[in-house]
Computed example of a mutant assay.
Amino acid sequence: MAAVKIVSWNINSVRFRIAIVEQFLREAEPDILCLQETKVVDEDFPFEMFRSLGYDHIVIHGQRMHHGVAILSRVPIAEDDRFDWQANREARHVGVRLPNGVRLENVYVPAGGDVPDRDVNPKFGQKLDFLERMTDWSARLDGPTILTGDFNIAPLPSDVWSHKALLKTVSHTPIEVAALDRLQASNDWVDLGRHFHPAPARLHTWWSYRSPDFTRNDRGRRLDHMWASGEAAKAARAHMVFEDCRSWLTPSDHVPIMTEFAF
């Protein structure tokens, strides 16, 4: 069986942070990189750097200034689908199939604004509706699938720096956690982060830019996830979070996560 390393990273502008993307690819050498929040239209995507490192198979779904997702691979991939779970044509999903038939779905779930009430904050309602559409799709899936990306939800008490302090903060509210739980149950998804690093182990992937030194108070959240179903889940061998990337020059507020599979 061949080992395949798949990374997910909300890069918060791929062109602005192209230097650290290159640094990471040279150091970690993943086979497949799933990016979210690329913030670039397709024709302006920085293809050259990725191709120079052997990532010749590129599927992108871009949007100017906002959103955007991409899958870059050293192994052949075939574009499979682009779902509009936001129902407003925002570029938040792209899916491919690997040579062995496994589906790989890359998603950027909306953040949801600041107030966890759909009546006063339409963005929060859009987030919940997005998750409901994903759940309907997930329930109809057949065959091994990997679902990864920035889910913008930290579901477990140990997925945030303070469960009590964040219960009313968007990304950790009970209503969001319940929506994510329904998505997970819809296809018996295995949360690979917690499969390999069981709660209550510390496992953060995001730290706000508001803190000049994120390490001082370490107020992190686990917003980035990699799930797998069926035979894909059984093929998972290890899961890593690259926390050091948060200290690199001009970092994203998210760090890469990587799962190694033996297909």
Rank of each mutant, 00 (worst) to 15 (best):
L156K: 05
C34V: 12
V7A: 09
A262T: 07
V7H: 07
A3L: 15
M49G: 06
H254S: 06
D181F: 00
K234Q: 10
E105T: 02
H66S: 13
L203R: 07
A91W: 01
V40D: 06
L98Y: 03
S13H: 15
H195L: 14
R15Q: 14
V14W: 09
I58M: 14
S211W: 15
P144C: 01
H204F: 15
W206E: 04
D119C: 02
P110W: 05
R140M: 03
I32R: 05
C34F: 06
R26E: 12
E243P: 00
G125S: 03
A179M: 10
R51N: 13
I175K: 14
I20T: 07
G68D: 08
P212N: 12
V255G: 08
W9C: 08
N121K: 03
V14S: 11
E22I: 13
D253Q: 03
I20H: 05
P157T: 15
I153Y: 05
E231C: 00
M134G: 05
S158V: 11
P99H: 13
E176W: 13
L183Y: 14
D129P: 00
R221W: 14
A236K: 04
V177T: 14
P30W: 13
R221M: 15
R202S: 15
G125Q: 07
A28M: 12
W161L: 07
P46K: 11
H239T: 06
P200Q: 03
T259E: 03
Q86I: 14
L141K: 02
R82E: 06
D213S: 11
P174H: 11
V40T: 13
P174M: 13
S52H: 04
I71R: 04
E79M: 10
L147Q: 09
D213W: 03
E22Y: 09
P157K: 09
L183P: 00
H163S: 13
P157C: 08
Q63W: 05
W85Y: 15
G149A: 07
L223K: 03
D244T: 09
V190T: 15
G68E: 04
V120F: 05
E105V: 14
L183T: 05
G113V: 08
H93D: 12
K5R: 14
F261D: 01
G149I: 08
R182N: 01
A78W: 10
G54L: 10
A233N: 03
D188A: 14
L156M: 07
A262I: 01
G95P: 02
F242V: 01
D42W: 12
D181C: 00
G112V: 04
E37V: 02
R216V: 15
V7W: 07
A238R: 04
G220A: 06
L53T: 06
R97T: 13
T173L: 06
A139T: 04
T38P: 00
S208Y: 02
N100I: 08
R92P: 01
E22A: 09
R219H: 11
A185T: 02
A2I: 14
I257E: 01
V107C: 04
N106P: 01
P76K: 11
A165E: 12
D244Q: 11
P144Y: 04
V109L: 12
L223H: 02
P256W: 10
